[in-house]
Design a protein around this nucleic acid. Structure first.
Lengths: 256, 256
DNA sequence: GAGTGGTCTAGACCACGCG
DNA sequence: GCGTGGTCTAGACCACTCA
């Protein structure tokens, strides 16, 4: 490992040389190992001293690289124990990407959600789906429709689209049989790890079918939440559109 | 300054001594100076070496304290120039707390918003307002109603409530005369700096008056965005409820 | 007690902005 | 050329976890 910052690969027409510091290079190397699956979700990665020795840099430099990975929630530090690959399969990260909370209390206090798979079918990607998933229109995708019910109240109705290839073999049965968050299943069964997502939120009114499934009247206001979820390297691997009832829950967001 | 981590003040019934590291103590001292107004928004704070000398710690310790303040957006680092107190009065932080973006393009590309003050009156806090602002019911507050229009389309209708005391002398005229974000005015004219906010989002339908002001039909779906904004030390200083049209814009949120 | 992450230091050098 | 923040190192010690 070079001891000083080296210029980025001079591909394209980089106008500025754009130096990248050593710890950024280390970060990319660790990211590569995460991506290659060298360490599984929930497992510990090597200690800072080990990594420092492997890359021939000081512990401080590795530390700064890991600090950034931890800030991006790709990795979790636990003092006295080690640094672990982030996973969706743990209690306190159950609903990592779900911002809907009850008007009083917390999602945890409501107990586990009831998950009903309404449909799961293979189809060809329409224009909007293809664009969101960075596919060509017509490429095969899986569409899943499901309903989440909290404390007996149907609250979220959502459609998900997944690229068919990485999720080969996914069926309604396998979805129904798996107990735990869907993203945890994607990790365990298909090796697909969602690390980041982007949401677009709008207010809409319920259509007939939607209203029926959510047990509200047609024309009721609903929150439309469109989410694109990404794996490493900003590759989109899921697009979903959720309709949220907001008469008992609300979407919570912290700004700073 | 103590050279080693010291126990927190043993007030209450702290079960664990709870040590706080030196850099956290430094962070609190700097926070105190920010709060006391030792440095104004937009101004540079002393250099890391100066602060290190003042507090009798190493530059690295000061650095870590400032790193956290920068992560919380209380302060902005600029290489080669210094570290500056965050402000709402700058171009690229114009709409720091506004997550509404046009379906295509960006808020910047839409040019400046038209701001119309619909009303501004002094009143006594109702229960919900008092609770949000941590006041007693009946204490005096200011209520402002305004309409934001982007490219000719009225898009946001919002009511704001402010505690009357810190905002003594605020009138509809002063609001209309000030050009720039409202939070910038609060900073410049009243010394109130919003550093953090929390939002609750729901889908609602437009009532008659609201529909008229937003130029949509009664019963149209709207995003209801309730925001509590805080100054230093988590003191709430504003509560607002906005109604957003989401036919041309959407609420954008990044998850990780 | 061994091993891990977390803190703190001191000093060297680099990249950047500005006069 | 100077001062600023940014990087990198090496080493000491602390706090936490677990066997």
């Amino acid at each position: 490992m070079a001891k000083t910052a080296i210029p980025d690969a001079p591909e394209g027409k980089a106008q500025t040389p754009a130096f990248s510091p050593l710890y950024q290079q280390i970060k990319q190397l660790i990211l590569g190992s995460l991506q290659q699956g060298e360490w599984q979700p929930g497992e510990a990665i090597p200690s800072e001293l080990e990594l420092a020795a492997r890359f021939k840099v000081s512990q401080g430099t590795v530390r700064k690289a890991i600090d950034e990975l931890a800030a991006e929630n790709l990795v979790v530090r636990r003092q006295g124990r080690g640094t672990f690959v982030a996973t969706h399969a743990e209690q306190h990260t159950q609903y990592r990407f779900l911002r809907l909370v009850p008007d009083s209390g917390s999602l945890d206090s409501e107990g586990p959600a009831q998950r009903d798979i309404v449909a799961c079918k293979r189809m060809r990607a329409a224009g909007d789906v293809a664009q969101a998933l960075a596919l060509r229109a017509g490429e095969p995708v899986l569409q899943i429709t499901r309903l989440l019910t909290f404390q007996g109240v149907p609250t979220i109705l959502e459609d998900l689209w997944l690229p068919a290839t990485p999720f080969k073999g996914l069926t309604a049965e396998r979805l129904a049989d798996y107990h735990g968050p869907m993203y945890a299943m994607f990790e365990a069964e298909f090796g697909v790890r969602m690390v980041r997502a982007s949401e677009q939120i709008r207010a809409v009114v319920a259509h007939d079918e939607q209203a029926q499934l959510l047990a509200v009247s047609t024309g009721s206001p609903l929150l439309s939440v469109e989410r694109t979820a990404y794996t490493y390297n900003d590759i989109p691997m899921e697009w979903r559109r959720g309709l949220y009832r907001t008469d008992t829950h609300h979407y919570h967001n912290e700004l700073s």
